[in-house]
């Protein structure tokens, strides 16, 4: 469940998603001198998406470190710093660039704790701005989070709100394991209530954003936002959708999904990553393998990214990932016609 807001005043204070992350970074660095931020253009430039902002001026060049364009090198540097007493937070400028850093994240960060028999820990955080919708085309718009959810030893989170962006970041920094935070580029400017005091959103707890009876819509990041908007429209058609924001892909809060499916008897999974071999496949299979399967009154439906590299043309780009209208239509089909 969502972490309760601290005070009524705090609840009224609004920050953008980017500001919330920056506040979390600042609070973590103030509280713990082992925490530092590094990455490409995170210093004076303030980060490609403005997330680090003024942190360079507040914490200096030893805590907010500009790096050369060396994604593999800096990912490995995060591993080395983490296993020797530091708590690095690495920004990879676009999540797509993680492809250049795969070796260190998948072969090293994820495995060191296990491979060394539990004798070392890798408390590192990687922040990855991902997702489409900015006209950045095929190499700057991907949603690759499912790749990492496939790797034992990694944790993968996807905040959808400013509140969760700060709370999941602080939880990730506390975590003794490598945590990848897939932030969404389209969400950086969205605003919402954010308590000023530091707080943690536990990693592995989904949030029920809307309680409903007729179907369960599961999504994360911007898809949770679109699912909630779709649910509001569906209510006008007398379709009462329950919306689950996963927040964390690994660990996955399957219990919350299964409990919801047992209640609503219908499941629609929405995600931006390519539909096949993705998060939807895993959740569908987990439901199929569980007792929740017996409660289904309709096939499980998935809405995912089209099986295509993200196109540049804005109309095509929009068509390649699930939009609010798509979710409304899919939910309607599932409830009214009983088909995916």
């Amino acid at each position: 469940m969502p972490t309760e807001l601290a005070t009524p005043e705090a609840a009224t204070r609004e920050l953008s998603y980017a500001e919330a992350i920056r506040e979390g970074l600042a609070q973590a660095m103030q509280a713990d001198e082992r925490v530092f931020l590094f990455g490409e253009d995170v210093g004076v430039y303030g980060g490609a998406f403005g997330v680090s902002g003024d942190l360079f001026h507040r914490f200096g060049p030893e805590r907010v470190i500009d790096t050369p364009i060396s994604e593999l090198g800096i990912a490995g540097a995060a591993v080395g710093a983490a296993i020797t007493g530091m708590k690095p937070v690495l920004e990879l400028q676009f999540s797509d660039f993680v492809t250049l850093a795969m070796e260190q994240i998948v072969n090293q960060a994820a495995k060191i704790h296990f491979m060394f028999g539990g004798k070392a820990t890798v408390p590192m955080v990687v922040r990855l701005p991902g997702g489409s919708g900015t006209g950045a085309a095929a190499q700057h718009s991907q949603s690759l989070e499912a790749w990492f959810a496939h790797v034992p030893g990694l944790k993968v989170v996807q905040p959808s709100t400013p509140h969760d962006a700060k709370g999941l970041l602080l939880a990730a920094i506390d975590d003794p394991n490598p945590v990848l935070i897939f932030e969404h580029k389209l969400l950086y400017k969205t605003r919402g209530p954010v308590p000023e005091d530091p707080y943690r959103v536990p990693i592995g707890n989904a949030a029920v954003r809307r309680v409903g009876r007729d179907l369960t819509i599961v999504g994360s990041s911007i898809m949770a936002i679109r699912a909630a908007a779709a649910a509001a429209r569906l209510a006008a058609e007398d379709i009462d959708a329950e919306v689950i924001d996963l927040r964390s892909l690994r660990p996955l809060d399957f219990a919350t999904i299964a409990a919801s499916v047992r209640k609503t008897h219908r499941l629609l999974i929405v995600y931006e990553g390519v539909k096949i071999m993705g998060i939807g496949a895993e959740i569908s299979a987990m439901i199929a393998e569980s007792d929740a399967f017996d409660f289904l009154d309709a096939p499980i439906a998935r809405l995912g990214g089209a099986d295509v590299p993200l196109p540049y043309n804005p109309v095509l780009e929009k068509a390649a990932v699930p939009q609010e209208d798509d979710i409304v239509a899919a939910a309607r089909r599932l409830v009214r016609e009983g088909r995916a």
Partner: peptide
Amino acid sequence: LGANGIVAGGLPIAVGVGMSI
């Protein structure tokens, strides 16, 4: 801090160890 099965795998890690020191 470990042997490594990946050729050059330890090199970037050393950078982080150096930063940490």
